[in-house]
Design a protein around this nucleic acid. Structure first.
Lengths: 350, 350
DNA sequence: GCACGGCATGTAAAGCTTTACATTCATATG
DNA sequence: CATATGAATGTAAAGCTTTACATGCCGTGC
């Protein structure tokens, strides 16, 4: 494989001139430039980026840590990150963590070993290096785009999950629902906790006893949404509205409701969160809260670029807007004509 | 940031010994080793992987090219690739191509510029470098795990899509279906063409006129499955079985059937391909062909490791098994009591 | 005609590691 | 006891590029 020396010899210039021709073409005379370009084309030369990085002290790689590649929610963040990275000439390394501390730490180690310049974290766990860094130290080049534990000074991009969740409850309340059940995400995640808080806040604002609302804990998977509904039905929880902390669980929940013979939305109205693309094609199409996932990724990458340019300047927080998407999975609460619970149609006695 | 020289000074040995302590600890005496380890711990030293790679002439990165990060099908391949890569100490760089030739070529360029040792291709398009390489030249370190154009000597991992698709048709035929419609994937992809061939082969084997089967071309998205069914219904195609080239289109198709008031499977039986996780929670749960996506990724990564070890040895093809998963979206064809088309229940006149 | 400034180019060091080869030292062997 | 052998360690080159500094050249202004 040709190197810069070969080019220099072929073009009969010094390696410094070749290097300049590549990085600052304006600094070399046109005839010289042409000779060099011809030599590069002839030998099919590509600079060795390891040597470039070694010398320049950076890799132009940014590592993105995701818990799982199967999560369409985090995938959308990655797409946004890619969009901006591509423009900036930065490469994205995807690190799958399985939410394993050691694995995440090993990816963070890639920053120290110069394989990456920084990390965008889409995981609920935090690197040991962050947890142990005393607050006064310069923060490692990490941007949070999904989880955002309080009390940490790392730059972050997020939406107001609390208000967004409250808005979903409000949507149901305005349709006359008073018995509203909730399926949460894993409560060890800040995002899940915020969405739960928001659901409860919405209930409280509507004057509904939020401490009596039936709450089941899920883990964001289809299966857990399904299981949660089975649990609610078994407990005869009696509800006409169901708030799910993400769309995937909402789809699982709908499958369970269907199986139990409960009509959607006539028996139970279901709302989700995230506006997953499968939701629009569900039966019936799912009412949900659209969160700007791609835009969040883009903002996170821009924040990263700022941070790499000036580590002190970029200590910021960006909050993006959300949007309610109403589809057919939510509708008016069953009328008072049948004062029973939603499950009445199949004869369940609350 | 500490470098190997700092460690050598602190431990009072030469840098060569430090290097050996890291790469071949057995070659250095225990007391020396301890001194070095203490120094490394004290200075929190991490070898600069750019320098290591520069010297060793490899990066220990493998780039995986995917058309889109939103495709759960390719995501599963990536998971498999990751599994094996992690064990082997290889890092996976995910390159999103949008099936854009220039973008793909730029990722391939990373091999020449030493940022990656090889590529696993999950895309339908091929790098210019591959297309232009004369067959007698040594193949670039690329493994195909999704597309497999004939006449190319690159190592590849695949399933027999033709036979798998034929098996799906056979499943419907054995339930008495004789009017079977097909929704294909994008026909510029080999995989789509193979699945279509397989569907037609299945029809032919059953003695059904495969040239008269209603065929609509989709593009693997939910929306295109939905649109395809609308098209079939508008054309009064009259069918009781529907073979979709992937699950995502099958889910879209089911949404359209539902909207048209056609029962599944009583009116139309639907089968998909890939065993996407959402299929199991669809309404009704989707019959599908399970393809070993994760295992394919794992095999592809192993092939890559072989290839990097010995480029001449690994010119192989691996074919993995598939499995029919029967769920409730497929059932017996409507009986002869109502000799009309599946759409009769809603009064459509074929 | 000379000095100076500025541009284009060259020289060489630096960035950090691995590794072939050299050296040292101790042990085993005759 | 002298020498061969082997293990442990050191020396220095190589891997490829960028860049501070040096050099050479030309044109300009006096």
């Amino acid at each position: 494989m040709a190197n810069i020396k070969d080019i220099a010899e072929l073009a009969q210039v010094s390696i410094a001139t070749v290097s300049r021709a590549l990085s600052t073409p304006g600094a070399v005379r046109p005839p010289t430039l042409q000779k060099i370009e011809a030599a590069i084309a002839q030998l099919n030369y590509r600079p060795n980026m390891l040597a470039v990085g070694l010398r320049r002290r950076r890799s132009d790689n940014v590592i993105v840590a995701v818990p799982s590649i199967f999560n369409p929610f985090t995938s959308a963040f990655v797409q946004g990150i890619e969009n901006v990275a591509r423009e900036a000439g930065i490469r994205v390394l995807l690190g799958i963590t399985d939410s394993d501390q050691a694995l995440l730490d090993s990816y963070v180690g890639m920053i120290a070993s110069k394989q990456a310049d920084g990390m965008i974290l889409l995981d609920k766990i935090l690197p040991t290096a962050v947890l142990q860094t005393p607050p006064e130290n310069p923060a490692p080049p990490i941007v949070l785009a999904c989880e955002y534990p309080p009390g940490l000074s790392l730059p972050r991009v997020r939406i107001d999950n609390v208000e967004a969740a409250a808005m979903l409850v409000n949507h149901l309340v305005r349709q006359g629902h008073t018995r509203i059940a909730v399926i949460t995400g894993p409560i060890d995640q800040n995002m899940s906790r915020d969405r739960l808080s928001g659901f409860l806040l919405g209930l409280k604002r509507a004057g509904l006893a939020s401490d009596k609302a039936p709450i089941v804990h899920g883990d964001f998977t289809l299966q857990s949404g399904y299981d949660a509904v089975r649990q609610l039905l078994a407990a005869k929880a009696g509800f006409t509205g169901l708030c799910c902390a993400n769309d995937e669980m909402a789809l699982g929940a709908m499958a369970a409701l269907r199986e139990a013979g409960i009509a959607i939305p006539d028996g139970v109205s279901v709302v989700g969160f995230d506006n997953l693309r499968f939701g629009a094609f569900a039966s019936p199409p799912l009412t949900t809260m659209e969160v700007p996932t791609v835009e969040t990724g883009e903002a996170a990458m821009r924040l990263m670029l700022d941070m790499l340019r000036d580590p002190l300047d970029a200590n910021r927080e960006i909050i993006l807007p959300y949007r309610l998407v109403v589809r057919q999975s939510s509708g008016p609460a069953p009328t008072a004509v049948k004062p029973g619970k939603a499950k009445k149609p199949r004869g369940q006695t609350s």
